[in-house]
Write a protein that binds this DNA or RNA. Structure first.
Length: 264
DNA sequence: TAGCAGGAAAATC
DNA sequence: GATTTTCCTGCT
């Protein structure tokens, strides 16, 4: 699909009947009242100025499988690299398609990645992420995660569902609190999910010290590298949810942009 | 629970 | 050109 914005108009060209206006509206969440959401999260100067600066930034509603697989690859990598890994995986395992005279490949199905060899996956530059991606694909292919069910649950239970064990093994290896929150926010409609990556952690330490209790500040100051324990993660994430409310995830997104600067 | 490994590439020095 | 960092999780 190719999308262009002209003022209030969104012009889309597509090669597939699947990408109709219903899909586009859903994907970009166009039926939601963005101003209402932005008003709701603008509870302090920091986020209010980020909202002003990046006004119009939206969360998209991604396909859960694609979202999950992409964020499994995102561990310990930067954005250019993640883009590269995802493209490599699509090129190698996706279905061939054509759009506006140009050939490309779709995001692979869970089956395609589940039956790929780890060695082959590594050739896409995935490194140690390769086995995780394969295992996650297998779980999804085998129906061990039901995204529609996850989406229907309240935030906390939905999160549990993604992080759960099955006979002592994680259903989704390589998926921890951060990746789970990303999947919940970007593809399962949990707008209160507040994923904490290194950028957000830095923003919080710098501008929202009140969200962190003094014990945690001491711990963070001591190791200096902003590595959050699961306990710290949960604590900060819960504080952020309490502070920003129903649309905490939108606040996260605007803060992320502000933290990175305009270069994205 | 703090500390480390894990692989490769980008960012920084 | 070498070193540090990177939208992190799992193991010890």
């Amino acid at each position: 699909m190719r999308v262009e914005q002209e003022g209030d108009l969104l012009r889309c060209a597509t090669s597939s009947d699947l990408a109709d206006s219903v899909f586009v509206k859903r994907y970009f969440r166009l039926d939601e009242n963005l101003n209402h959401i932005l008003a709701s999260i603008s509870r302090n100067r920091i986020v209010a100025s980020a909202v002003q600066r990046y006004y119009g930034l939206r969360l998209v509603s991604q396909d859960p499988w694609e979202c999950l697989a992409s964020f499994v690859l995102a561990a310990n990598a930067n954005i250019p690299r993640i883009t590269k890994m995802v493209s490599a995986v699509c090129d190698r395992y996706g279905l061939e398609s054509k759009f506006e005279g140009e050939a490309f490949r779709t995001f692979p199905t869970p089956d395609a990645l589940a039956s790929a060899s780890t060695v082959d996956l590594r050739r896409c530059g995935l490194g140690y992420r390769a086995p995780f991606l394969k295992l996650v694909a297998a779980s999804v292919a085998e129906g061990r995660v039901d995204f529609a069910h996850v989406a229907s649950l309240p935030y906390n239970e939905a999160r549990e569902e993604l992080l759960r064990d099955l006979s002592g093994e994680k259903v989704l290896p390589g998926v921890g609190p951060k990746v789970a929150d990303c999947v919940l926010l970007y593809s399962c409609g949990k707008d209160e999910a507040f994923p904490i990556d290194v950028w957000i952690a830095r923003v919080l330490v710098k501008y929202y010290p009140r969200l962190l209790d003094y014990r945690m500040k001491l711990r963070l100051a001591r190791n200096g590298k902003l590595k959050l324990s699961p306990r710290d993660y949960a604590e900060i994430s819960n504080s952020a949810r309490r502070h920003f409310g129903t649309y905490a995830g939108y606040a996260q997104q605007y803060l992320f942009m502000a933290a990175r600067g305009a270069e994205i």
